[in-house]
Design a protein around this nucleic acid. Sequence first.
DNA 1: GTCAATGCAAACTTTTTGCAACTCC
DNA 2: GGAGTTGCAAAAAGTTTGCATTGAC
Lengths: 148, 148
Amino acid sequence: MHLEADVLVSALQSAGMRVTTARRAICEVIATSHAEHLTAADIQARAETLAGGSIDPSTVYRTLDVFQSLGYLHHVHLGHGAGVVHLTDETDHHHLACESCGQTLDVPLDEFQPLFDRLARTYGFVVDRAHFAVVGRCRACEQTENSP
Amino acid sequence: MHLEADVLVSALQSAGMRVTTARRAICEVIATSHAEHLTAADIQARAETLAGGSIDPSTVYRTLDVFQSLGYLHHVHLGHGAGVVHLTDETDHHHLACESCGQTLDVPLDEFQPLFDRLARTYGFVVDRAHFAVVGRCRACEQTENSP
DNA sequence: GTCAATGCAAACTTTTTGCAACTCC
DNA sequence: GGAGTTGCAAAAAGTTTGCATTGAC
């Protein structure tokens, strides 16, 4: 189930691309990020630690683009601010993004499937599941707000 | 049903705020924008035409902020790029945003309400309906893509 | 006459791009 | 050695902010 960094590295090689220190570190970071939603800046920071040197933001973005092209990543917007990346692998859930505390809640796909099916049938609209995030307020923030 | 620009102007006055040429023009624009999804730049352009002079982007943003604070507007992100504003008034529908052609489809709230109710019951998550947009591909783009 | 609102310029965040230097295969 | 990658710097888009001037009430 878990995606190993090796798989990503091999994917680069199979595509005729080169494996550099920066890319190896980024592979490691995204392979071990399963349930997390990392921004490019997050990935840069972790990859720099792993690589033991600095990595330019543009390198991070370019590498993430590569993995999106190869189909391993999608990027998602959970509200304002930076986008996050997400393993394509893990598409069995969706995100509820709290606009107050920034946390995200993962919800099984089953909850959404009836709606998505209906939208496809009625409007011919195919939802991009990976790109989809529902913005609102989580239970904790909702309670805090209503009992000051 | 239609929100008149006068209502917005009065709201400013009731809140102890001043009515300027720029604000009057912006009121006019958003009051007559019903089904449209306007960016700050769109609003600036139209307001400048109405006002017959230039209006600074910062003035537009500040004025839109005022109306969001007063509860008349929400801003929505329909994918990448600039956000759009939306009359709070018209919350009886939701947006399907095509990531390919950029068009948006309005869908009655009824389609979504069962899901929203379920999310609230199960997770305590209250969906910000105005901020919510579903990203995907519309019928036309989906067909174009699949028959080249 | 005050104080809020404006315009301007500058900063800001996130992301993209051009290009010379580098290094992986 | 040659093509793919990198870093740097600069640019892009969208938005926010500081501050002096203007203008509404």
